[in-house]
Design a protein around this nucleic acid. Sequence first.
DNA 1: TATTGTTATACTCTATAACTATA
DNA 2: TATAGTTATAGAGTATAACAATA
Lengths: 195, 195
Amino acid sequence: MSATPTPSVRHTGRSCADAMDGDLGWALGMIFRRYLKAAKEAAVDVPGGTRGYQVLRSAAGETPSTQLAIAEQLGVDRTVMTYLLDDLEEAGLIERLADPSDRRVRRIAATAKGRARLVELGARLDEAERVALAGLDEGDQAVLRRLVNQLARVAAVGEPPGAACEVVAEVEPVESGTGSAGIPRRRPRRPARRG
Amino acid sequence: MSATPTPSVRHTGRSCADAMDGDLGWALGMIFRRYLKAAKEAAVDVPGGTRGYQVLRSAAGETPSTQLAIAEQLGVDRTVMTYLLDDLEEAGLIERLADPSDRRVRRIAATAKGRARLVELGARLDEAERVALAGLDEGDQAVLRRLVNQLARVAAVGEPPGAACEVVAEVEPVESGTGSAGIPRRRPRRPARRG
DNA sequence: TATTGTTATACTCTATAACTATA
DNA sequence: TATAGTTATAGAGTATAACAATA
């Protein structure tokens, strides 16, 4: 044993954040949490919050993706997509479209109402992003945005076992009411909120 | 109405990640999730996983912080700190030290065993960080690390209502066994894992 | 009265397994 | 047989509220 019985320390003037300095996980969590805090407030009126926004955004794309593709793209389990889409569909923001080429899949498209909501949300979430990046000068913000996007893209293609993006030929809009060519409607109704 | 009855789309050759392009929340979540996936595997043998590692890292600093200070620094509720520290203490990685100047608080210090474990963990988590940043060249990785750290620091000081970092004078090591000057040991034992 | 830490409870998010219908 | 989606259930993580000890 040496001559230092250990505890009995004295403050050295370092900031408390210094202890975590250099830990990427801590830093990412810190930033992500700050973003979520602001973003959740901005997205309170959309089912599923920020996740609902991301689904809505994906659904507003040119090519309606399948539920599974969106789930992989967003990094959530396919089972949560069902609940998420139930709520978004009930709110009239998205539609489940039948795909004639594969009757198992549902392609998710935003409704006109959904697209309108997306515009409002986008503006509010831009503000949330601004809050999240506050503390960096504009140049650094731009650099961070670029690198984070670039890295996320790499992560997106690396994660799924198969490619989450496939080419789609045609989709058939649901003529609600006509039971002929529409979606079979396998699920009658959700049996009262779980909880 | 115009001449476009809408759905019936054709693939345009865009990547699926394009739909989320520019969304900071999506990108951060994607990166953070990839880090966590790798980091969890690296920290399976430490109670609390990556959170436990962060606590341990904070406890290994020169100035033992209080539970509340660590909780705020890590962005978790103070109630989860109790469970986290229970497990870490049970594993012999940290100690709860009494603070003579305020008998309410407990200052958290890493044991010798905890510090040793921290070294192993650090090496493995460096590898997890390497995985998380894979896809960026070394220069960009360095830039991203710098900006992320800088931003996290801003977030750390901005979050808590009061300053989470205070100057501490002296702490008193617990002489386990001697009931005189040690911690009053308010909690006899945890009543069997909750679940 | 306010604050630190503890405890029990409740809520949210996510994952697992079993099922239906399609391929 | 394998896959897309649904459903119920279980689990992890987190938050809320009440409490004791101390300031």
